[in-house]
């Protein structure tokens, strides 16, 4: 009786993983297809690359640069992280903000990639109409002994294909969550002060993490 159930469970288990492996179609036209393709690509590389697993930041950054970054809209992200003050920033300040914030996010994201072990990632079916300009693709990271972590990607199609402009972890926007501390910084030191702070932070990270 018990043995049977275990066998059944094993079957369920196998059934769970096989389609995930087979369904790695290269569809980047739809938002969920894009998320799936990029996730599969990146995970396949991490799984097979010992250097990345052991935290070789240079290789991780190269991977992120090539596979992930082209699908993100950093200007939109920076704007949302800054909030209202974005409007009072000069075009030059805006450009520098985007560059600095982009680097900060990339460094952080790259680090969390090296933490990836053997979790499985489930991409849920998209609930959106074909004409929607803004969609949220939900994914679930499963790990044993804990409830799955929900990571959602918010994408927008502004004519140049789908681009991610926010990532929600357990319902928290990684982008707008910066508004508090960025706002504090702007009030204390102005926009140039904020840019300087982010740039200093990036320099510290570069020294700590190495890799360019």
């Amino acid at each position: 009786m018990m043995k049977q159930s275990i066998v059944r469970c094993l079957l369920v288990l196998t059934a769970l993983f096989v389609p995930g492996v087979c369904a790695a179609a290269n569809d980047t036209q739809t938002p969920d297809g894009l998320v799936r393709t990029v996730t599969d690509d990146v995970l396949a590389i991490i799984r097979s690359d010992k250097a990345i697993q052991s935290g070789d930041m240079r290789k991780v950054l190269a991977l992120v640069d090539e596979k992930v970054l082209p699908h993100f809209d950093f200007r939109r992200m920076t704007m949302l992280a800054i909030g209202r003050d974005w409007r009072s920033a000069s075009p030059d300040q805006q450009t520098r903000l985007v560059a600095a914030f982009r680097l900060l996010l990339v460094r952080t994201y790259a680090n969390s990639l090296t933490q990836y072990r053997d979790q499985t990632i489930d991409i849920k079916p998209l609930r959106a109409g074909p004409t929607d300009k803004q969609v949220r693709v939900s994914t679930e990271i499963r790990q044993s002994g804990a409830q799955p972590i929900n990571i959602d990607y918010v994408l927008e199609n502004s004519g140049e294909g789908w681009k991610v402009f926010d990532v929600l972890v357990a319902g928290v926007s990684l982008v707008t969550n910066y508004r508090g501390s960025f706002g504090d910084e702007i009030r204390a030191k102005g926009i140039d002060g904020l840019i300087a702070s982010i740039e200093t932070k990036n320099k510290t990270l570069e020294t700590e993490q190495g890799g360019k």
Binding site: V172, R179, S197
Partner: peptide, 26 residues
């Protein structure tokens, strides 16, 4: 994971607070 938090932020306390409250509300 705590490294990510360390690295991501200018003010760790503030970021952790906003993060906590937002996920609770969610």
């Amino acid at each position: 994971l705590e490294r990510t938090l360390d690295e991501a932020t200018l003010d760790k306390y503030r970021y952790a607070r906003d993060f906590y409250l937002q996920q609770r509300r969610y």
